[in-house]
Design a protein around this nucleic acid. Structure first.
Lengths: 193, 193
DNA sequence: TTTCTCCCTTGATAAATGTCAAGGTTCTTT
DNA sequence: AAAGAACCTTGACATTTATCAAGGGAGAAA
């Protein structure tokens, strides 16, 4: 258990076996069924979730009941409503599972304790968030500067594993498009070759 | 000098006078004239810039020579091409000054040295990037889920100081709109009241 | 198997946004 | 003061994207 978690941790910051044991104590495993919620809007986000297996999404729901996908997370990715997690304010995102999933949770109190006692954990978190920030900046850049078809191509090129695993209407939502529009874009692309 | 920088640093992580002096050694002041580049696409981003005074922007230029603004930075904000800064790869963003500006620079070697020697610096950076990540996620969420007028309203509500200081066509660019479209949106809003 | 969701596609039409072109204002530079 | 640059606005028109409505297929559940 936690194999993938510690593999990825060690890729960022090398841990001694002892350090690894010390950190392990603060981790909580959790299984999630397909369609099950990890977090619902309005609740406080109680943990960061590292995905050992499965696929999840974070999304908002607008006044017309349309879902807007903020993030996908598959194996070795981390997902949460970070603002809610850090401030204990009500979450603005929903997080649910797209497949049966196995997660490694770090609760807020564990997080705080790890930050206090394990300097390498702080480094891990810093690098984790830095990487997420850079990826998000690129996605935003694509969103404000590219037309829909190029955004779609960028997505499938950047995240082929996700593109194959999640329903198309969710990719549309992630890109800020309606399912109909994405369907038509794909048709045009297919006709061109 | 560095007053605002240390004020903001202390708001995130409290420093003793000695720690402050130790950190000060690694900082470089820099003045920038309006329209002057801090970074040009293709160069390596050599420093993070904290804005003591003035206003800057980071942006990309697409094949049609259209500019797309990734970020604004006014007093107390930090700006850089983080990916280029951390990896020493060529920058994909341009950064230039919208007004005469006074900056505090942290070069990559200073950054690495500070990370090695000053645990509070790592905490500062972690909190800085976490805040930037959360803000960026909200901007993205707005971009994929809201129509242009609501995005504009959100922007002016969230960043009134920036909205007053930068040209409208740059706000349009930040929002992913043409200047003409933003002009028409503003006209409609004005006619409604 | 049958039924029921969920998902994708397609058509017709409407709405939003972009493009191109022109003119006018303000501010900066000479 | 004059010239130039940057910026904003407006109009006419094209393109992109959304909305509404319908139908079909694949896979899950009964």
């Amino acid at each position: 258990m936690y194999e993938l978690f510690f593999q990825k941790f060690n890729e960022k910051v090398a841990l001694s076996p002892q350090e690894q044991e010390q950190i392990k104590v603060y981790l909580t495993p959790k299984k999630l069924r397909k369609r099950q919620y990890l977090l619902q809007e309005g609740d406080v986000c109680k943990s960061i979730a590292f995905v050992e297996k499965g696929a999840l999404r974070a999304y908002t729901v607008d006044e017309n009941m349309n879902e807007h996908i903020i993030q996908f997370a598959i194996e070795s990715w981390t997902i949460s409503d970070l603002f809610s997690y850090l401030t204990a304010e009500p979450a603005t995102y929903n997080i649910d599972s797209l497949e049966d999933a196995e997660l490694v949770l770090i609760t807020r109190s564990a997080h705080e304790e790890l930050l206090r006692t394990q300097p390498k954990y702080e480094t891990y978190i810093r690098l984790l968030i830095t990487g997420a920030y850079i990826a998000l900046q690129r996605r935003l850049s694509s969103n404000i500067s590219q037309p829909a078809e190029e955004r779609y191509t960028r997505f499938t090129d950047t995240y082929p594993a996700i593109a194959q695993r999640v329903p198309q209407h969710m990719i549309a939502s992630y890109l800020g498009l309606t399912p109909e529009t994405l369907s038509r874009i794909r048709k045009k692309m297919a006709e061109r070759r």
